[in-house]
Nucleic acid binder design. Structure first.
Length: 562
RNA sequence: GCCCCCGUGGCUCAGUCUGGACAGAGCAUUUGGUUGCGGACCAAAGGGUCGCAGGUUCGAAUCCUGCCGGGGGUACCA
């Protein structure tokens, strides 16, 4: 556990300013926030700050002169190798080589905890994701939700938050009823009855199979019930069945949840009524058109419907899904006391964002505690052709099919590769292909190659675990690799604060690239140079440590062989 | 109509929220590389008006405004 180097350098420069000012080398002016960036060109060093560029007027001297005086007063730090003025007044800092190499041991000591930070300060965060309707199998769109949510949860945990993962089971809405009716119809058909299938029902073949199983297991038990009761009972059974199904498929993708929260419990516990009462008292509830509405100044529309007897005739007063959202946000932030509730939603729900925020606000909660991540859609393709998907029509590619074809790691990596803001064209043909177009193998190959080197060394009798003298690591490729390894912390900080898991994929590819370059330039196992070999074996082990951590943060495996 | 997302080399995408020094990868193309630890690798080359037009700034792919193109949403579906 450690502080980011970038932050330490920013502070260092700030102290340089202070020293220069108190020493009279610089006039007194408010020191601005010191921005520190990573320059692209290696000759500009590891870290660079342009802060002096905009101070010419206030300091009454050129940016270069300011920078020079700050540097003259820069406090010493073990990690600073070279600090110099460059260009029009940049402060460029190069890390000290001996410090860099010493980090190899530090990384090994930290093990799987390398990359962990404390920026979360132990705050409790809930990540609620997937939450697909339990009326059918998980599709590719939900798979994107799953990998984003799961990776985000991993990142937040690494960043020092206390994280809980939750799946919200929609078992109270009208879709559930529709599902029950579909099952009922198929059930009767399975028993040989001539039952018409509801027009807007679930047409997928899986409904037929489920109904057949139920008919086989329960016989005509549901036949003796009143229709309404049978529909409800079958719907509940069906949902329980599908939830287990979803759970298995997500597990196969490497995604598990701490809590499976049932929408229905919001009503059964009486919470919804209490929350509705609170809103009513605060004046956010209006009634007209035979319905109950939520009204709030933040909403563009006049009001959002909370419940109406028209949505579901039985039970007559069944609320809308938004009603559930109101009670749910209270449950998250108050009853369970999360500091922050993160929702992972498909972009087609973006219109609901202001409502949930407004609901939180109306309940007296800080809407900033509600964080909604919208990810764009996944267009499924097969060889360039669009594949249409809808659970209702029964035409879709399930996550299970995809897992059988591709396996979890490529799915995770591909769905994680671009920002949540970009639409993904997921080509099934490409996903299956184990080629250069599929960078997941490139990254994992680097790990397998590391494992192979260590196996090879062990076979030759090297003490692989014995710490080497890391000060012997002076080759440019070795130092470049170490630098990239240290970056993992920056990436965790960036991805966790931006809630942008895709940074991990970029990082993993870069790390793999630098390892492959190191492998090319530096022979690890060399009987004629035992000291160097021992040092390089140490570096290789540290590299494996970092690469494995990056892969694990993405929920992927770090294979020993491929 | 209104709201959200996208528009960066032939293709797929980073970089935009936190403005900085000649705009980065991968794929594809061309040309090379190991009598050594896995060639699922490495290196080099060509290829870009960062959708368009204004504006802010010492400085804009990045911020602001308008426009164009693509996708999604638009309240008794969830």
């Amino acid at each position: 556990m450690r502080r980011l180097i970038r932050e330490q350098i920013a502070e260092l420069i700030k102290n340089g300013f202070k020293e220069a000012q108190t020493g009279g080398a610089l006039p007194h002016f408010p020191i601005p926030e010191v921005t520190v960036e990573r320059p692209r060109q290696p000759e500009y060093g590891d870290y660079s700050s342009p802060v002096c560029l905009r101070l010419a007027r206030e300091a009454q001297m050129s940016p270069r002169e300011i920078a020079a005086r700050v540097l003259a007063h820069l406090p010493p730090a073990p990690y600073v190798g070279k600090a110099e003025v460059a260009g029009g007044g940049y402060i460029n800092i190069t890390l000290a080589t001996d410090w860099l190499t010493s980090q190899v041991n530090a990384i090994l000591e930290e093990g799987e905890s390398f990359g962990n930070l404390e920026i979360g300060c132990g705050r409790r965060v809930q990540v609620e994701f997937v939450s697909a309707n339990p009326t059918g199998p998980i599709t590719v769109a939900s798979a994107r939700n799953a990998v984003i949510g799961d990776t985000l949860a991993n990142l937040l945990a690494a960043a020092g938050y206390q994280v809980e993962r939750e799946y919200y089971v929609n078992d109270a809405g009208s879709q559930v009823r529709k599902f029950g009716e579909s099952l009922y119809a198929r059930y009767l058909q399975a028993l040989g009855r001539d039952e018409p299938f509801p027009e807007d029902g679930y047409h997928g073949h899986y409904v037929v199979e489920m109904a057949q199983q139920m008919a086989a297991r329960y016989g005509d038990r549901y036949l003796s019930m009143p229709r309404e009761e049978a529909v409800r009972a079958l719907g509940n059974d069906g949902i329980a069945y599908v939830v287990e199904w979803i759970k298995r498929d997500l597990e196969a993708l490497g995604v598990t949840f701490d809590v499976w929260f049932h929408e229905r419990s919001l009503y059964e516990s009486g919470l919804f009524d209490r929350v509705l009462h609170m809103l009513r008292e605060r004046g956010y509830v209006v009634e007209y058109d035979d319905a109950v509405w939520f009204r709030h100044p933040d909403l563009e529309s006049d009001a959002v419907i909370i419940r109406s007897p028209r949505i579901i005739p039985d039970p007559a007063e069944r609320p809308t899904y938004f009603a559930s959202d109101i009670a749910y946000v209270w449950n998250k932030l108050v009853e369970r006391g999360f500091d922050q509730a993160i929702y992972v939603w498909g972009a087609d729900h973006h219109g609901d964002v202001p409502r949930v925020k407004a609901a939180a606000k109306a309940l007296g909660l800080d809407p900033a505690r509600v964080v909604i991540i919208l990810y764009q859609m996944v267009n499924l393709k097969r060889g360039g052709e669009d594949v249409r998907m809808s659970k209702r029509t029964g035409e879709f590619v399930t996550l299970r099919e995809l897992l059988d074809e591709v396996g979890p790691d490529p799915i995770r990596f591909m769905l994680l590769t671009c920002t949540v803001d970009a639409t993904i064209d997921f080509d099934l043909a490409l996903a299956v292909e184990q080629s250069d177009k599929n960078p997941v193998y490139y990254v994992q190959y680097a790990h397998a190659r590391i494992a192979s080197i260590l196996r090879y060394a062990a076979e030759l009798g090297w003490e692989v675990e014995k710490p080497g003298d890391v000060s012997l690591l002076t080759h440019g490729s070795e130092l470049a690799l170490i630098r990239k390894m240290l970056d993992l912390q920056e990436i965790v900080a960036l991805a966790a604060t931006q809630l942008a898991p895709h940074h991990l994929t970029v990082y993993a590819k870069e790390l793999a690239t630098l390892f492959h370059a190191f492998y090319r330039d530096c022979r690890v196992v060399d009987a004629e140079q035992p000291e160097l070999t021992q040092a390089r074996l140490t570096l290789v082990r540290a590299a494996r440590n970092v690469l494995a951590r990056a892969l694990h943060l993405m929920g992927m495996s770090a294979p020993e062989r491929m």
